[in-house]
């Protein structure tokens, strides 16, 4: 697999959210606005990048039996770091993302990449993989966040373009499930079409 492929496969082909359906909790919870979605995506990208790098560096030192606990400690460290940094330098983001920052620890994407990729590949590849997956996650969140904010509050990046309320249901809990569901369906449709094309 080429270096470029490692980086870009997370964008669309193996998008962690839209294709592999991992990390669903933050996807549903923080996508009420584009700003939150983007913030969450970048925070997770940071954690993915750092944890992938460190785990790949330490992969020969960590005994197999304590692999998972070690990974969890490393991931939790970076999550706590980004939590403190956001609280210090982006307090408004901290209050809107709330509990979902510490919950990056249990985002299956992070542990999943550590176990499936970083613990088996070189540092360089792991960095690319973490970055790619993180960007893929951010793209997915931003798409869902945009749809929900535009339809639900009639605004984009907090700039309101309609008077009064939008279609409220899209900002509320059910809207999260509906938008996510239809986005996954759309991605599957596009992929099946692409496959058809390459087969012919």
């Amino acid at each position: 697999m080429s270096k470029l492929n490692i980086l870009t496969k997370g964008f669309f082909k193996e998008n962690p959210v839209l294709v592999l359906v991992l990390g669903t909790c933050p996807t549903l919870a923080v996508t009420t606005s584009v700003k939150n979605a983007l913030g969450m995506g970048l925070a997770t990208t940071f954690v993915l990048l750092m944890s992938n790098t460190i785990i790949s560096l330490l992969k020969n030192v960590i005994p197999d039996k304590v692999r998972i606990p070690s990974f969890i400690v490393i991931i939790a460290t970076f999550v706590s770091m980004i939590d403190l940094l956001i609280q210090g330098y982006a307090p408004s983001l901290a209050s809107s993302l709330g509990i979902f920052i510490p919950l990056i620890v249990v985002n299956c994407i992070v542990l999943g990449r550590a176990e499936a990729f970083a613990s088996k590949n070189t540092v360089g590849d792991s960095i690319l993989d973490g970055l790619g997956m993180g960007i893929g996650f951010t793209i997915a969140l931003t798409i869902i966040g945009s749809v929900r904010e535009i339809l639900g509050s009639g605004s984009f990046f907090d700039h309101k373009f309609i008077q009064g309320d939008g279609i409220l249901i899209f900002v509320l809990a059910p809207g999260a499930f509906l938008v996510f569901g239809f986005t996954v369906a759309l991605v599957r449709y596009l992929q099946s079409k692409k496959k058809l094309k390459t087969e012919n």
């Binding site: 359906v21 059910p174 809207g175 999260a176 499930f177 509906l178 996510f180 569901g181 239809f182 996954v184 369906a185 599957r188």
Partner: peptide, 10 residues
């Protein structure tokens, strides 16, 4: 997954 998510939405 998609239909499951939509069911969850309802």
């Amino acid at each position: 997954v998609p239909i499951a998510l939509i069911t969850a939405g309802i």
